[in-house]
Simulated scan of single mutants.
Amino acid sequence: MSKKVTMQHIADSLGVSKFVVSKALSGKEGVSDATKARVMETAAQLGYFNQKNGYLKAPLPTKSEVSDPQRNSVLVLMPNIRFQTKTSAYWGRILEGISEKLDHEGVGMVIVAEQSVEHFMQLLNPKALMGIIGVGEVAAPLLLEAHRLGLPIVLIDHEDELIPADTLFADNFESMHRLTRHLIGTGHRELVFVGDARYSRSFYDRYLGFNRAMEEAGIVEPAAGSSAAHYLPVQGFEKEHFIDSITRWAAEKMDNGKMPAALVCANDQIALAALTVLQRLNCAVPDDVSVTGFDHIEDTDRTSPRITTVRVPKHALGRRAVELLQRRVHEREAPAEKVLLACELLYRESSGLGKQR
């Protein structure tokens, strides 16, 4: 029989006191958000939350509480992490979908951009809420505090093993797999995935879709993963963040005569940066190098050439999240769902026919 994991085991693993672990797991003040995150990550790794009594889950409201007319609002968690804001060309459209659907249903919306767990509870009136929708990455300590409210949770483009929640994603793997197969089918062999696969779950799934298509075409060895020749892990959040690193990389490739046939970018912000860099270096797109993006933000419609990309149904993600939450409110014991929404590939002028190198 396996040994029970205790708070003392977690404390010993981290080199902190049991008192600190207890406060972190109970959501009490006096422990920094960074420490709470470390405690929960370690607790999950050790299996603390998998034990029968390792974590007291907050009870969901009863049916009578759910039907209480005072519960007429949905809490939307959208902390300003990685430019997740209402003005974002990506996240803002998802928020619009949530807002439109809630307005149609006659339900109010409370947006919380606060990242601090200590301030979180001071902002809320839990008795007025019917549920919670998380948009993008939400830190585990904040999600745990949200879960303690005892309300159903739906997460968009994010998941957390500690939080029982329905999740909603674009079909990132299949969409990137199809896009990469298209490039290979039009003659491109030297392709580079541009973006950090560790950045988010969506980026990781897009990288896997790219790599699977490369394996199927015999460009990379199965199970070996993409080598440095096919992977450029640039980091940042917006177009301007990627310019310098892509410029250094592209200039070196051009000097060595080893410029790839296509840059398969993890999102449109990276693709916009790549297009800008290539044009500054007098590298013709798509005649010399094809460029593709992912997400279909409005800026890709205004570039010359227009960027081949994947249209993520952003408004639909928001609307579907509301529908999932409404279902969860009334069917609390139903199995958790992970929903993938299909995307549309937009083949445009930034990707052409591949050339023999």
Rank of each mutant, 00 (worst) to 15 (best):
F19A: 13
S116I: 04
L353N: 02
A321W: 02
G92S: 09
E41K: 10
G15I: 11
H188C: 08
I81K: 12
L149F: 03
K57V: 14
A197D: 05
L143Y: 05
V192I: 13
F169R: 03
G218Y: 03
S304Y: 06
Q269S: 08
H230V: 11
P222H: 09
R348E: 11
R348H: 08
F237Y: 15
Y204R: 15
N172E: 13
S88F: 10
E333S: 13
H158N: 10
H104Y: 07
G30L: 08
K355H: 08
E252N: 11
S67A: 15
R38M: 14
V135D: 04
T303L: 04
L75Y: 00
V31I: 10
H104T: 13
H147I: 02
H158Q: 09
Y204A: 13
V194L: 08
L353Q: 11
I163Q: 01
I94A: 06
V194P: 03
Y48V: 00
R189Q: 15
C265V: 06
I270C: 06
S2W: 09
A229G: 10
H330L: 09
R320D: 10
V339Q: 00
E161D: 11
I111M: 12
F193E: 12
V39C: 09
L353D: 04
Q235S: 09
G92D: 05
L102C: 06
R82N: 14
Y204G: 10
V76I: 15
L25H: 08
F49I: 02
R198T: 13
T62A: 15
S2D: 14
V20P: 00
R93N: 08
L346S: 04
I270G: 04
L102S: 03
A146P: 01
E298N: 07
G257M: 06
T186G: 01
G108V: 01
P222T: 04
H330Q: 12
E65N: 11
H330F: 09
A217M: 05
H296S: 13
K258L: 15
G97M: 08
E216P: 09
G195I: 15
G257P: 05
F210M: 12
E190K: 15
L232F: 10
I270F: 05
K127W: 00
K239V: 14
L144Y: 01
Y207S: 05
T308V: 05
A336L: 12
L208K: 14
M1H: 10
A113W: 05
I132V: 15
H188T: 08
V135T: 00
T303H: 02
K239Y: 07
L324M: 12
A217R: 00
A37E: 15
V107N: 06
E240V: 02
K355T: 00
I132N: 06
T6R: 08
A146K: 03
C283V: 12
A197M: 09
A229H: 12
G318D: 03
E100F: 09
A128H: 07
R82Y: 13
G150H: 06
L14Q: 01
V135S: 01
A262D: 05
V135E: 02
S22Q: 11
G354V: 08
L208P: 03
E65F: 07
N50I: 00
A165G: 06
L346I: 12
S67D: 14
A24E: 07
I184N: 02
R201F: 10
G27V: 04
Y199Q: 13
E252A: 11
D196E: 15
V5T: 14
Q115Y: 00
Y199W: 08
L129M: 07
R212T: 14
T300H: 07
F169P: 01
E221H: 13
L278T: 07
T87A: 15
G352L: 07
A228V: 09
